[in-house]
Design a protein around this nucleic acid. Structure first.
Lengths: 228, 228
DNA sequence: CCGAAAGTTGACCATTCGGTCAAAAGTGAG
DNA sequence: CTCACTTTTGACCGAATGGTCAACTTTCGG
């Protein structure tokens, strides 16, 4: 099985789909999702075995399928959860903000996401690299709208000469690329600069320079300036 | 089968492993590699089916296995070829170059790689995201050395105030992240800015701004300047 | 033109893996 | 305690897939 397409019925038991915070199955679902995120993010959809997810979650395979009916369905739940995390955590950027401050903060927040949820980042990357078969529609909807909206803000900043004249969408692509690379390409980074402690070495020592470089690259300034 | 580890014997027939440019099997191997690159890059190692690779190459499955013995072996050949392409095509950067020119050119070249070999880029990404089980050693060797060497050049530029004081390794991570994102995250970019023609819209219209932003971000200048 | 080596092919096999199922065990409201 | 429910579990099944094989055809140097 390679492609994921149709929608299967919602996750089973427990009236409504949510799962009540105290029910027996709630903890189980949590464990399963956590385990699944880890496995899917490393092996991709096809490479992941339900058996391994079950093992990591500490229960038999049958039990995993009991909660999430099918592997496909489990995958969808996991990846949609990741996308939500992404979109929610992005925070807001408003036209009134100081461009330099607002974007520095945004970039730092994005960097924190990579740091705190590297597996989520990698899972997202695998999904997109594979053509985004599951979340493609969401990207064309929610994400696209978000970019369009923020793009307008960039545009106004550019009018005031407080941001370099770069296509707003591309500005985001740059920022996302750089921030996510620290999660997605961790293996490569570790190979190149064998850090004793990845977080300390990379996110604490390396990050400030990277944030600065991005802000400088986007030509973000605090004062209004004449267009060069 | 999920993990790839031990080394299996080289690709079979044809004395030496190379394959003579005119032999019957030469074209076949080429076709197979091309097909395999495509399939692996989209589905990952486990998701790829030998049958599909064979179909794309226009021959029966048995024939593919005849040339590359095992799926694992085929994967290794493909990915190592990609890494070679990567390292070779990077070109040289020398201390005598003008930082601004040299890096602009380097970035443009890297962007061309993404444009001309998007599948190779995605395959590389999947491998690294999965922990680089196959090319990890190469990264710790060849790539690491390359970065160390070029890093020294960056350092000398920084001494002269012709480059921002950013960790050289991170400078590369940034550049790679940004340039590769156009291949790896194509699906996302297409979702956000539905381009009629990806190449034209993204690489021709978008690229210049991106190159400029990177150069600006890295603080690369043509003249020597006092450290700020 | 001959013969050995290279290449082709489809049938076949063993294994793996997602998913089913039924029987047993737990849970909790009334 | 009882009854209806949720949950647990491992045995089991069928399909898919990597890899083998033996028979057959093609290629090509001498």
């Amino acid at each position: 099985m390679a492609r994921i397409s149709q929608i299967d019925k919602a996750t089973p038991p427990l009236k409504a789909s949510g799962a009540e915070p105290r029910s027996v199955g709630f903890r189980q679902r949590e464990k399963i999702i956590r385990a699944a995120t880890g496995v899917f993010s490393q092996k991709g959809y096809d490479g992941a075995r339900v058996e391994e997810i079950a093992q990591r979650a500490g229960l038999p395979k049958g039990n995993v399928l009991y909660y999430y009916k099918t592997k496909k369905n489990l995958y969808r739940v996991v990846i949609e959860q990741v996308l939500s995390l992404w979109l929610e955590a992005l925070g807001d950027i408003s036209a009134d903000d100081d461009p330099c401050d607002a974007m520095s903060q945004y970039i730092r927040r994005k960097l924190d996401l990579s740091r705190n949820y590297p597996e989520a980042s990698r899972l997202f990357a695998i999904e997109v690299i594979g053509g985004a078969p599951v979340i493609g529609e969401h990207l064309k909807g929610r994400l696209r709208d978000w970019v369009t909206q923020k793009g307008a803000i960039f545009h106004s900043w550019q009018q005031e000469g407080r941001m370099a004249p770069i296509d707003p969408a591309h500005a985001f692509f740059m920022i996302w690329a750089v921030t996510q690379t620290y999660a997605d390409f961790q293996a490569q980074i570790e190979a190149v600069i064998s850090p004793a402690n990845y977080d300390a070495e990379v996110y604490e020592k390396g990050a400030p320079g990277v944030v600065a470089a991005l802000v400088r690259g986007l030509g973000l300034s605090s004062q209004k300036q004449p267009l060069r």
